[in-house]
Write a protein that binds this DNA or RNA. Structure first.
Lengths: 215, 215
DNA sequence: CAGATTGTTGACTATTCGGTAAAAATGCAG
DNA sequence: CTGCATTTTTACCGAATAGTCAACAATCTG
């Protein structure tokens, strides 16, 4: 007892194989459930069932519902910002924007649950990530906005406000995941047609990029 | 007893003065609460407190939580579609789009709670308005899309997919209400500066309209 | 294999929350 | 003012749900 018990304080010990597997299973299940029902709308039982696990067992890995939620956040946040981080200040402005938009769209399409998860969090007032938004996100956006502003001043981009440009890109690329139900209601099975995704990408790129190209 | 009791069956009787006032107070409070916490995240007690009313008293006016929610929906849905309905097939395409975008933005700014309310409903799978979306909304969008397609075929608009254009407009105009917290985190008090709203409108219009103008 | 540790579960608790019943208070028509 | 209808409140109930506990099972280590 003694050793393991001592080592585990600070929660900094390396997890066992089983812990690693089960935590991952739980986080996957939790992302699905939270993304549909939001924090309060989701129950631990739902998550446990989706993870094929009893509730007490799940609570053995994450002591509280909040901890599960925090775990999902942590596992998703960084990946979510990766496309923005990856914008290259030395690249061709329009090409960089095209790439950023494409990657954001691709991520929303591949992980719609993650997109909806964030949308829920923000809609509910971002209680868990308010600090993150005001620090990390803000810094990143500030940096990339400076970059865009430079592109504009160099005459390589139409005079757009960088912040509004990013908001516009976020809004549009996440819309197809977050408002999926509405889009399906309007377009019907069209959405599942092969090629729909590519068509969407083209439609967005064509309008957004035309709006920022120098003319 | 007899008369009033008889008249009230079918629920079709005209409400008393007190009923009219209190229902309205409840719906206002409910919109605020639902828009932040979603359906399941909101409690009747919260709404009752915001309405300065005891829970049983509130339930005297709306028998169930679902009824309150439905009441809010009904009170908001029509108004929400009004800008789209108001697009004029005989107007100048770019001018009509400018007007539509402007009106949507204005509505989101004036009633951000309504915008967030819908966003929550859709995010959670639109359980209460799924039929509405597939019938009324779809019909309206289909009609307006035909109109846009005609504009394109007449060479008065760049060749854009009408549906994606509308999705793009919805996404962007509602983003500032729905993701308000995130935008405030990035921009800070900037958001409350007088003129910010106008600047936002200009930024959006400039990018979106440039994307659809014939060149 | 034996002992210790880690993992799993059924049964339970406390609380929150949607909703009800019935009495008390208020409003109102004649 | 009187009597009836409407409105409001007090005191509840039952279901759902976050979280606990103690006993049991699997696994790991020497």
């Amino acid at each position: 007892m003694a050793l393991a018990e001592k080592q585990r304080r600070e929660g900094s010990e390396k997890p066992t194989r089983i812990q690693e597997i089960n935590r991952s299973i739980i986080l996957d299940a939790a992302l699905d459930v939270f993304s549909i029902y939001g924090f309060r709308g989701s129950t631990i039982d739902q998550i446990a069932e989706k993870a094929s696990m009893s509730k007490p067992n799940l609570l053995y890995y994450f002591k509280r519902k909040d901890d599960i939620y925090a775990g999902v956040l942590e596992a998703t946040l960084d990946e979510w910002l990766e496309p923005l981080r990856g914008m290259n200040p030395d690249g061709d402005p329009v090409e960089e924007l095209r790439r950023y938009i494409t990657r954001k769209l691709e991520m929303s399409a591949r992980k719609p649950a993650a997109s909806r998860f964030f949308a829920n969090e923000i809609l509910h007032g971002a209680p868990h990530i308010h600090d993150f938004l005001k620090t990390e996100l803000k810094q990143l956006v500030d940096a990339k906005s400076t970059m865009v502003r430079r592109w504009v001043s160099e005459g390589r981009l139409a005079p757009v406000d960088p912040y509004h440009l990013f908001f516009l890109i976020w809004a549009t690329t996440q819309h197809y995941a977050d408002f999926d139900v509405q889009i399906r209601a309007v377009l019907g099975d069209e959405v599942d047609r092969p090629g729909f995704y590519e068509q969407t990408t083209q439609a967005l790129l064509s309008i957004l990029l035309n709006g920022v190209k120098v003319r």
